[in-house]
């Protein structure tokens, strides 16, 4: 019974959202607003039960969660967890206009963490890592002989990276040899965007296929 009801509600909401293809209408707006409310609550509940309870409340006040989380009997409070608790509560002050400036302290922690970790991670993986990944032999030999295809690919790759980087370099006017390299860089970027477009089409069609498949199973449940 519950499964049938679930299927019917899901099918009804699917049609309500698809109705937007005809034009914006009250059915679409209803489904859209319902989705916003339900999804906000979903994130909140999942956050509370998956992280807040076992990782914060259970550590600050172990006995309070013993009824639903398996805690060691001798679990002792870890008082340093009061720090994220305070920062978390400060973040909620944003809801009260008079003291909302206090939320900046929590934001400062979040931004400091993001800046500190991003600085090193992007430096290692996306900057140094990418330069390292580009260091391939230009002349490629395979099975004791000269590999023409792999050599061409290697040259195209390194030329492509350099020219596309030149295109993004705006401190020098794009004229002469620099301009020619920049134009070549645009061609590489166009192929990149073409690949991205092809893949985007592919992704969107897959999602539609999934939804049509669901409607098929709903129809099958009726007949």
């Amino acid at each position: 019974m519950a499964q049938t009801l679930e299927l019917w509600i899901a099918a009804l909401l699917t049609f309500m959202i698809f109705s937007f293809l005809y034009k914006d209408n009250p059915f679409y707006k209803f489904a859209e607003h319902l989705f916003v409310g339900v999804s906000a609550a979903y994130w909140m509940v999942i956050g509370i039960w998956s992280t807040l309870m076992p990782n914060l409340v259970a550590r600050l006040w172990p006995s309070s969660v013993s009824g639903f989380i398996n805690m060691p009997e001798d679990a002792q409070p870890e008082y340093h967890f009061i720090i994220p608790a305070i920062f978390g509560i400060l973040m909620l002050t944003r809801l009260v206009e008079r003291i909302s400036w206090l939320s900046r302290w929590a934001m400062a922690f979040v931004i400091g963490f993001a800046a500190g970790t991003n600085f090193t991670r992007y430096l290692q993986s996306d900057f140094v890592g990418q330069i390292y990944n580009s260091m391939y032999p230009i002349i490629v030999k395979a099975d004791g002989g000269f590999a023409l295809g792999a050599t061409i690919s290697s040259i195209v790759l390194i030329v492509g990276v350099i020219c596309a980087l030149i295109y993004f370099f705006f401190s020098k006017e794009h004229t002469g040899a620099f301009g020619a390299a920049s134009r070549l860089g645009i061609w590489f970027l166009m192929v990149t965007f073409g690949a991205a477009f092809g893949y985007t089409v592919m992704a969107r069609i897959s999602l539609l296929t999934g939804r049509i498949q669901f409607l098929g199973s709903w129809l099958a449940s009726i007949f």
Partner: peptide, 22 residues
């Protein structure tokens, strides 16, 4: 090859932006 070259240039550019903003 060409896609990787373009994406790599974009990635390096974004990384420099994020590093300096951080």
């Amino acid at each position: 090859i060409p896609n990787m070259a373009g994406q790599r240039a974009i990635m390096i550019g974004i990384a420099l932006g994020i590093i300096s903003t951080s």
